[in-house]
Structures are given as C-alpha cells and as structure tokens.
Design a protein around this nucleic acid. Structure first.
Lengths: 338, 338
DNA sequence: CCTATTTCCGAAAACGTTTTCGATAGATTC
DNA sequence: GAATCTATCGAAAACGTTTTCGGAAATAGG
C-alpha cells in the first residue's frame, strides 16, 4: 500500500542505501542523484516507516508519561493538566512522541517497572503523581532507562527530577502571615507519602522559628490534598487551639474546602481567619474572597521535565535536580491580625 | 542486552517458531515443550519486542489522540481532562497504548492528516477539540484509518463520533427556565465553528417555540466558551433587552463569567437574573451561588470513544454516532420569574 | 506390517529500515 | 604511467518478530 524505500529506490534507479543516505542527510551522495531521489520521494509521497526504523536503531523516539491514578484523584487535573501540557509541548518540539500510561499502586506491585518499560520500548519515562512508597519510585532511579520524576527529589546518573522549591514556598506563605501579625498559624499538610509534604512542613517550621515562634506539631494536620481534608483539618485545628487566626494549606483545594467550611460556620474570611493555599489553581482566583496562595509554575515544570529527559537520553546531560521558584500571590483571604 | 526470542529458543532447545507459537497461544504444540519454553521465558525474563512485532504484523496496538490546541485554550482542561481519563482508561483496558498529539489549525495546514498518521503508525485516531473548519475534520472521515471524533457529528465506514445530545441538553435548560415563568431568555452560545453550538442553538429554539415563544436571533450572542465571553455576551444582551430575566450559556465558564459580572453590577442571582450553564464542570458547584447547569458525561464520552475506535479497528463494528444523554442539574442560579 | 492421518516442530521468508564494508571510477600526485 | 586518493554508490547483514510451508514422528486404521 504505502510506498517503501524500495519503491523509491527502484523509481529513482538507485539502491536503497542511497535513498537512505539522502533521507538521513549523509554527505557522500552526488547532488544530482540527491535531487533525483528527493523528487521521487515527493512524487510517491514516501514516508519512512518509523517502526522499521525503530527496530534497527533500537530507539523509538518516544517517551512515556506514567501517572499514578490519573483518573482516580478528583483533584488531579488542576495540577496535572498543565504539567501535561508543558510536557507535551516540549516533547513535541524536540521531535518525540508522548505515550500516556496510568498506573496505580496495586498495578505496580504486579508488574515491575523494568518489565513495563522494556515491553513498551520507550526511550525514557516521566513520572508524575507517584508516592514515595510506590514500588516504582525506587525502581525508576535504579533503572538504566533515562527518567525524570516530578515532585520526587531523587536523582541518579540517568534520572532527574523537577519540583517547585516547596521549602521556599511554604516560607513565603508563613512569612507573609507573620508580617500580618499572626502568631498562631496552623498548617494543613498533604499526606506524608508525598515528598512535597515534607518539604512544605520544613519551610513552615523554618519560617516560624526564624520568626521566634516555637514549632508545635499539634498545629499541623495531615490531609490528602482534597477539598474535604481542608474542612476537616481546619475543624480539628480550631478545636485544638481557640486562638488560631491563620491556616496555611498544602493545596488550594484544601484551602477552598476550609473557606467554604468556615463561611458556613458564619465566620468571615479574612477578618476572623486568614487562609493561604498552595498551587494557584484557577479556582483560587474565582472564589469569593479570592484565595491568597503560592503559585507553582506547572507548565514550566512540564517543559523542564521533558527537556531534561530528552537531554539525558541524548547524552547531553546527567540526572540532576531542577527546582523552580514559587511565587506568593497575595489576594483576599489574608489580612492583618486584629 | 535484553533476551530475544532467539535466546529463549536456544535455552529451551527448540526453534524460534515454537517459542513464538507458545507465546501466541497456538494449539499445535506439545504440552511438555510448552511448559519447558514457558519456564525458560520466566527464567530469562523474556519480554517480546513490540517494535519487531509491530513491523511484521503491520499494526502497533497504539491509538493516537489528537487534540487541537491542547495547551492554548485556558478553558480546555475542564472538559478535556475527564474525557482524556475515560479514553486512557478504556484504551488501556483493551490492551492498547495511547499516544498524545496536539495540533493547531496552522499545523494542520502544513501537514496533511494522512501524512501525520502514516508516519506515526497508529492503528487509529481519536480527535477532540477540533473545529468544523479545521482541515483535518474532513480528511479524517475520508481517510481509511479508523477514527472517532468527539463532538463533531460526522461518520463514515471507519469513523464514529461521540457527543452529548446537545439539542436535548439545551431543551432541558430552556424548559426549566420556561417552567419557572421566564419568557425573555437570552442565549450566549459558543462559536459557530463548533458543531455543539449549532445543536444547542437548535435545542434552544425548539424549546422556545414549543413554549409558544417566537425565536429571536437578537437574543443570541456568539462567544468563545471562555469566561470573559460570558460577561460580554450578557452585557450585550442586557443592552438589547431590558426585560431580560434569564440567560442560558453554552459553557459553565461563560455562565461563571456572567455571574461575576452581574454580581459586580450589584444585581442578585437568581433574584434579578437566572443563569443556566452547560457542562457541569467542577467549578459550577463551587460558585456562590452554585450554578444550575446541564451535565455532560465527559468520562463516559472518553470511554465510549475509545471503545468504538477499537471495535472499528478490530472490525467488530462500523462507524456510527454515539450520543450520550445530558442531565439537568438544578442548583441555585435559577429561580421563578417574579 | 503397510498406509493414512495426526501431531508436533523447524527452516526460511518477510516486514522496512540503517549501516558496514567494499567496489568502482575518476582525479590527483609524483 | 603507476600509485594513491577521493567521491559516489551498492550488496548484504542486521534488528526481532510472525507466518507459511513442509517434514518427521507418532498414531490410527486396515
């Protein structure tokens, strides 16, 4: 059906070797024959079969994006979608294809990572949404296949990661609250199996202590990044401390849940409670009041991840950590402590 | 590096033909040798090279998802992400891989559709976010490669589409408004190059006329599905009709933009203006007041699309239209006409 | 025991490329 | 004019599978 290199060779009166040479920009081919071949290629509408090429070159020009529980997490898309866009754009710019896989903790137990990638024949893999205790996490860095992790700070010779500077992000949030005069500041964190949770906790603590306030573990609640966790966490924290005037949330979704919750209680935000979120998802600016938050450059994260992966697999760089700066976006849910 | 079928054959003391046979469930192989081969496969950790298989079988077990302007449209993810999840899940369940492509109207002009798919060697393609006037639209249905379009009602022997019943959806919205006693009902539609816009307009008109109200083109405004279009459209419609009491929007984002806009004007929703959106994106239930809307089964759309595509390419069905029922979700932005 | 039928298995072609190695012819050098 | 060099090209192997075709061994039938 489709013309092959053989058809082109025959029509141009040369060998397939020569056709291959002109298509791959080799220099040792006579300009005249090059022109002739090119003309035939054009006429026949010849397109190289990428499968055949992959087989002989032993690379597919394809990278895999494996995301854990793509469709499970309701919160997922706010964060993931933009990262995905960044990845997709950069991958495409660099001439690769992107194939999407979703996996789950249970699926990971069944199929070892290497089985997975060897069968799929991807040149490299990007991972997102993975937990520290997921089986793949450590298999990935140990494997020889180039990879980059998103929000899991592990590197190896062939494994990069990209993440936001979560420590700085949390510090910015807390310092903002401190400047406003708050001193009893709660923290509704994500689950402990996310690396970002540990980092944000660290930033929370550092900022507090730098402000001369002792760190109190009772002030932090561990949620799961979802909306309801924000409400539950806030309720819990408020029951522990009746002088709570501000809460920092590890996700905008949780901040939003808390906002709705305290508003239902008849409290006013920010007058009675200051709230700071994390991520700067679109929702944050649509709430009433608009949520003060720490912005992550999600699209950039995707681009950087794709870029680094491809540089690794083209042997232009080694695995490294890429940390993007966050940005404090002050909106309407924070006010001076009265 | 990786063991090949040849290694397995040698280690098992059989020919590669036999190995291939046991791996592909052929019946004519002695149970003893089958067991022996299987054991060796296990020991060596042999995984078939899917590229080699693709080459000889002339199919890749891969489907492409091409989406127009993936990262351009800010509104995109609300709708697309869930469809993507549905597609991804179903594709994976059926044993295929999903490769993601984003394209744009300009990119489509450069590369004809068939060039695109022939080079990528996908077995079939799903298209989403494409416009009626995009070059690919008609190339797709004309092509012999199995495909399914999302929200573009065109079919062929090898091309299905899946869509929501937009006529019914719009009717439900308008009937709801009519029941509440509204009679001057505006419609902020999407752009005319979306098939869904035409259908929703038709539903709007049918419901109105069934209610004994003449259709007035002046009551419809064409936006672009984005938030600001909702505000602009509402302003325009209100300037044309000072007795406007309700507006129907072709997307929740536009409804949301309108909601914010009229609230800023000091109007109350739903007391002064009733609003109905479309899609039921997550945002709709988070607004204050919560937006009444027409729900689309996005995840189901994705699943159905994937399912139909694969059935077509496995020759179990022909191209057909798949229309999913919408659902009216009455919330807080609609009230009786006072 | 001889033939006919099954059952089981292997040799080899094929898929469409890239790449190695060498061949040829003309140009250059001395 | 022989030797060397350079530019240009082709034959063939290789990548790892699937599949066709046929052959040998085992079984069945008479």
């Amino acid at each position: 059906m489709n013309p092959t290199i053989k058809d082109v060779a025959k029509a141009a009166g040369v060998s397939i070797t020569t056709v291959s040479r002109v298509l791959n920009q080799y220099s040792d081919v006579n300009p005249k024959t090059r022109a002739k071949v090119l003309k035939v290629v054009e006429q026949l509408g010849y397109k190289p079969n990428s499968v055949a090429r992959s087989l002989v070159m032993n690379r597919t020009n394809t990278v895999g994006l494996v995301v854990s529980d793509l469709s499970r997490s309701r919160n997922g898309h706010h964060f993931m979608f933009e990262v995905l866009c960044g990845i997709n754009d950069r991958v495409q710019e660099l001439g690769y294809d992107l194939v999407l896989f979703s996996t789950s903790t249970t699926a990971q137990k069944k199929t070892p990572y290497m089985d997975f990638v060897r069968q799929r024949r991807v040149d490299g893999v990007l991972m997102m949404g993975i937990r520290l205790d997921d089986p793949y996490t450590h298999e990935v860095v140990a494997a020889s296949v180039p990879s980059v992790l998103i929000d899991v700070p592990l590197t190896s010779q062939t494994c990069s990661y990209v993440s936001t500077d979560n420590i700085a992000g949390a510090r910015m949030a807390i310092e903002h609250l401190l400047e406003l005069g708050h001193s009893r500041i709660g923290f509704v964190n994500g689950h402990a199996q996310a690396a970002v949770s540990q980092e944000r906790l660290q930033g929370y603590r550092m900022a507090l202590e730098a402000g001369g306030i002792a760190y109190d573990p009772q002030l932090v609640y561990y949620g799961n990044f979802e909306q309801e966790d924000g409400a539950i966490g806030t309720a819990e924290l408020r029951s522990r401390f009746d002088d709570l005037t501000a809460v920092f949330f590890a996700s905008d979704l949780m901040a939003l849940g808390a906002l709705k919750y305290v508003q239902n209680l008849g409290l006013r935000v920010p007058e009675n409670l200051s709230i700071v979120g994390f991520d700067d998802i679109e929702l944050a600016a649509l709430m009433q009041p608009m949520i003060t938050t720490v912005r992550q450059k999600r699209y950039e994260m995707g681009r950087s991840a794709a870029e680094s992966l491809i540089r690794i697999l083209e042997q232009q760089e080694q695995g490294r950590g890429i940390i993007l700066p966050p940005e404090l976006v002050v909106r309407e849910t924070t006010a001076p402590h009265s």
